[in-house]
């Protein structure tokens, strides 16, 4: 079983922080607006501290999940299929037979480029979110993976993939 590059935690943590900041800013701002303006006359005093506490708690949870996600993520190129294990709350184990691979993408977001990482996305004709993305790969490993997946998909290519 192959693990992701540990550096992927940086990407996930940064994303978690940005999302937590946006969400926290929204609820704290709303609470602040409610107490300062005349919208809600008898707003309790604890509203703003409660909003801040909620925002901090959610941020902590997000960070924890982002950290834990790395521990859970695993993938493996098996004989006939690609096997992936992921998910902190909902643990998902996906099996994608090579026969079913339609095409393979490798992509790098700006955040991934700054941290020197890449993501490989495997597409199938399936309709239920089975397009699988493997994040946190070094660019060379991503290239290798893409190439070997392509080879395996061609080797096993059967009839009409639908």
């Amino acid at each position: 079983m192959e693990r992701l590059t540990p550096r992927v935690r940086v990407v996930w943590l940064l994303l978690a922080l940005v999302r937590a900041a946006i969400f926290g800013g929204a609820i704290v701002g709303a609470a602040f607006g409610l107490t300062r303006t005349a919208v809600w006359e008898s707003a309790p005093d604890v509203l703003v501290p409660a909003a801040v506490a909620l925002a901090v708690a959610l941020a902590l949870l997000r960070i924890l999940v982002a950290w834990r996600r790395y521990g859970v993520w695993r993938f493996e190129l098996r004989d006939d299929d690609l096997y992936i294990e992921r998910g902190v709350f909902t643990r998902v184990k996906t099996v994608v037979p090579y026969v079913r691979v339609q095409h393979v993408d490798s992509r790098r977001s700006p955040l991934e480029r700054t941290t020197g990482l890449a993501t490989v996305v495997v597409y199938t004709a399936g309709s239920r979110s089975s397009d699988v993305a493997i994040p946190g790969l070094t660019p060379t490993r991503a290239e290798d993976l893409q190439e070997s997946l392509r080879q395996l998909a061609i080797e096993t290519a059967g009839e009409d993939a639908v």
Binding site: T90, R91, V92, T94, V95, V96, S127
Partner: peptide
């Protein structure tokens, strides 16, 4: 097309899982 084995946090408490044939 793909086979998914999913277990939510509540399912894991009871050692249960859902298997989807996509």
């Amino acid at each position: 097309q793909a086979v998914l084995h999913q277990a939510t946090i509540f399912q894991r408490r009871r050692r249960l899982a859902s298997v989807t044939a996509d």
